[in-house]
């Protein structure tokens, strides 16, 4: 019963969406769709409360037990309390990368930005950017490993990567001219070759993967809707 009821809800709500998509004139179907969408929104809101409770409880427990690195848990709890306090005090709601008041602006009467927005824009956004900037270094380290010419595939990868890199910077075409290759190959310089590699073999491979992904998605959806795959409920597929 514990599994049958959720399965039934999944099937009925999924079927409602399908019927609404194909037969939009079926009586009451749009109302039924709205009801299921509202159920989803309500469940999401309560799940958010669950998430916050889980975050607070697990961090408080680590602080109480003085687990390794508990000071970071204190910082997290402090930041949470501070942001929550200012957002509630000024009746702020998140909107994109900032907070707005219930009147639709995050500026006070003096024209200064609210403290809740300042926390987000002056503290979180730079920290987030710092983490993202690590990608640049990680690309270099990952490329270094990938481009080791240890077999035919790696050599092909390395050669195409060199061509694409040279084709993406002005230096590539200057080098092409300096080597005198334009007399032999004409306009087929590094930028041209780079475009060819990206437009023909690369997009062919990507489209092939996307085809597979699309079929996988459709069949996975049908399996979930019809209850063939229940492992995401914890049923282990059986």
């Amino acid at each position: 019963m514990q599994r049958q009821i959720p399965m039934f809800i999944v099937f009925v709500s999924g079927l409602t969406m399908i019927v609404d998509y194909f037969f939009p004139r079926v009586p009451y179907i749009q109302g039924a769709r709205e009801i299921f969408l509202n159920w989803g929104r309500i469940a999401l809101t309560f799940a958010m409360i669950l998430g916050i409770m889980n975050l607070l409880m697990s961090n408080l427990r680590k602080v109480a037990l003085r687990k390794a690195g508990w000071i970071y848990n204190v910082i997290l709890l402090g930041s949470f309390a501070l942001t929550f306090y200012f957002a509630v005090q000024y009746k702020m709601v998140p909107s994109g990368n900032t907070f707005i008041t219930h009147k639709g602006t995050d500026m006070g009467s003096s024209g200064t930005m609210s403290f809740a927005s300042k926390i987000f824009l002056d503290v979180y956004t730079p920290l987030s950017g710092t983490i993202f900037s690590l990608v640049a270094f990680f690309i270099a380290s990952a490329a270094f490993r990938a481009f080791r010419a240890k077999n035919i595939e790696a050599i092909l990868l390395l050669s195409s990567a060199i061509v694409v890199m040279l084709g993406s910077i002005p230096f590539g075409d200057s080098l092409f001219a300096w080597l005198g290759l334009e007399h032999i190959l004409g306009h087929r310089n590094f930028s041209w070759l780079s475009t060819q590699i990206q437009q023909i073999p690369m997009s062919a491979a990507q489209r092939a993967i996307n085809f597979g992904v699309a079929f996988g998605m459709v069949f996975m959806s049908i399996k979930i809707l019809t209850g063939i795959d229940r492992s995401y409920f914890g049923g282990g597929g059986e």
Binding site: I209, G212, V213, F219
Partner: peptide, 30 residues
């Protein structure tokens, strides 16, 4: 696991007849 292999994984791991049949059907459609 590349692309569709992610979706096929559940069938492969469970070795469930019905799920494995669905993978074959997917190949036929493809």
């Amino acid at each position: 696991l590349i692309g569709e292999e992610l979706y096929a994984a559940s069938a492969y791991l469970s070795q469930d007849a019905k799920q494995m049949g669905s993978i074959k059907a997917q190949d036929v459609v493809r």
